[in-house]
């Protein structure tokens, strides 16, 4: 009983997150300006991280927490670097 509830519930959560990934990807492709694309990328990273976490619960394995943390860190670094690039036109001054 509880296995089915978990299976169905977590599948729904995964589908919702994949839809969110699609919407964020739409903003990345559509733009119209660079800052919109970067914001879309940031949302993409966030939802990918949440998807990995839900995936970890679904497989019942504790190993997925670190990948989620790494995706979050990469997302942060990438967004900061890109925002810096928008402001100055170069990342390293």
């Amino acid at each position: 009983m509880s296995a089915q509830i978990l299976d169905i519930g977590l599948s729904i959560a995964q589908i919702l997150l994949v839809l969110a990934l699609g919407l964020a990807l739409f903003r990345v492709i559509r733009g119209p300006r660079a800052q919109d694309r970067i914001l879309g990328m940031d949302t993409l990273y966030l939802n990918a991280m949440l998807l990995i976490l839900v995936f970890g619960v679904r497989t019942g394995s504790d190993l997925y927490l670190e990948p989620a943390l790494i995706v979050g860190m990469l997302g942060f670094t990438a967004t900061v670097a890109l925002a810096k690039f928008l402001m100055r036109g170069e990342v390293i001054e």
Binding site: L16, L17, L19, A20, L21, L23, A24, F26, R27, L39, G40, T43, L46, N47, L50
Partner: peptide
């Protein structure tokens, strides 16, 4: 989270 992404669009 999906609602947030929807707002983005």
């Amino acid at each position: 989270s999906l609602l947030g992404a929807f707002g983005l669009v």
